[in-house]
């Protein structure tokens, strides 16, 4: 039983306080100012690490030597050593950083400043602000194309995806989506941009080449009022044939066929599901459930929830540390 062995090893590691090598999911707890670290083998919380105020967005550097955390109410992006949990330094982030995306160059962070209607570009090496770009009100979702040439900010009150040319830091397109766009991701080698709209209850798929709308995905769950179906975070499987979309207070994750844009399934999770992260082989999906304060583990193959893990208050972001 490999799982048993891993559990034993993990336990030993814990006892001897040796550096953990277990594969982990890091979850930010918005109202606890902590990160809960989940061991993907044991599906247990192994560590709780203090952070700045109201941690939300979380992402690792390419070599996983650093973890970046949006500490929204501390108005900073914290850089943490994932081994020790120590804050190495803070990055100038603009006010109220909510979400960000690390550019493919592993150096530039594109940060949505929710209270300021700007997107801030920070050089993580020189620790300086490279640019600030005026976007719509309450910027939130951040994405960057695989070639690093296009960054996206979604603005929740302006209801747009703003397309940023990363060479000039200028907007070259603004596309309307439904109300309260929350999250954006490029898909299929950067040819498609997916944007979720929380209050609109839809996911819009754009052609990245010309910003035209390719599809709009709607959701319907028996016994759940359409108003409660509020798409937020989403993730793609490796082959990008399937997308998993968190539906907020509908307490479900939708499974979408990314080729036909049809919804294939709904998976029951905890309350007000926000974001999610896969384990390394993408066999398990971990969703953050804000209101119930837990993480649901979904078996990707069977599309069944297999475990609920209690974490801190209002878990929000999730990231894999393999």
């Amino acid at each position: 039983m490999p799982r048993l062995i891993r559990t034993a090893l993990a336990a030993t590691a814990l006892l001897s306080s040796a550096p953990a090598w277990a594969e982990e999911i890091w979850v930010t707890n918005e109202k606890d100012n902590t990160i809960s670290v989940i061991d993907t083998a044991t599906l247990e919380v192994t560590r709780t690490i203090p952070t700045g105020e109201r941690p939300r967005g979380i992402t690792f550097s390419k070599d996983y030597s650093k973890v970046y955390i949006c500490a929204s109410d501390s108005d900073t992006v914290q850089v943490m050593d994932p081994e020790s949990g120590e804050i190495l330094h803070n990055l100038p982030s603009g006010e109220d950083p909510e979400q960000f995306v690390l550019a493919p160059d592993d150096r530039h962070l594109y940060i949505a400043n929710e209270n300021d209607a700007v997107t801030t570009v920070v050089d993580t090496e020189t620790r300086t602000v490279v640019a600030q770009i005026d976007v719509g009100i309450e910027p939130e979702g951040m994405a960057i194309s695989p070639d690093g040439k296009v960054a996206i900010t979604t603005s929740e009150t302006t209801n747009m995806a703003h397309w940023i040319d990363t060479a000039t830091h200028e907007l070259f397109a603004n596309t309307l989506v439904d109300s309260r766009p929350r999250h954006a991701e490029f898909a299929k080698d950067g040819t498609e941009l997916w944007v979720s709209a929380e209050i609109g209850g839809t996911v819009t798929v754009f052609s990245a080449a010309d910003q035209t709308e390719l599809a709009k995905i709607h959701f319907e769950i028996k016994g759940v009022h359409p108003d409660r179906i509020q798409p937020v975070g989403f993730e793609f499987t490796d082959d990008e044939k399937t997308a998993f979309v968190a539906l907020g207070p509908a307490n479900h994750v939708a499974v979408i066929n990314a080729e036909t844009y049809e919804v294939e399934d709904y998976i029951l999770v905890g309350r007000r599901v926000w974001h999610m992260a896969f384990n390394a082989d993408k066999s398990l999906l971990f969703t953050t459930n804000g209101v119930s304060g837990d993480v649901t583990v979904i078996d990707v193959k069977s599309r069944e929830p297999i475990k609920t893990i209690k974490v801190g208050r209002f878990p929000w972001g999730a990231a894999l540390r393999p």
Binding site: D75, P92, S93, G94, E95, D116, V118, T120, V129, A131, Q132, I133, D134, H169, E170, L171, N174
Partner: peptide, 16 residues
Amino acid sequence: MRLDHLFAGLCWLCAA
């Protein structure tokens, strides 16, 4: 970050 205003001012023009 009072830098904001400087940058915001510049980029207001390019987006308008």
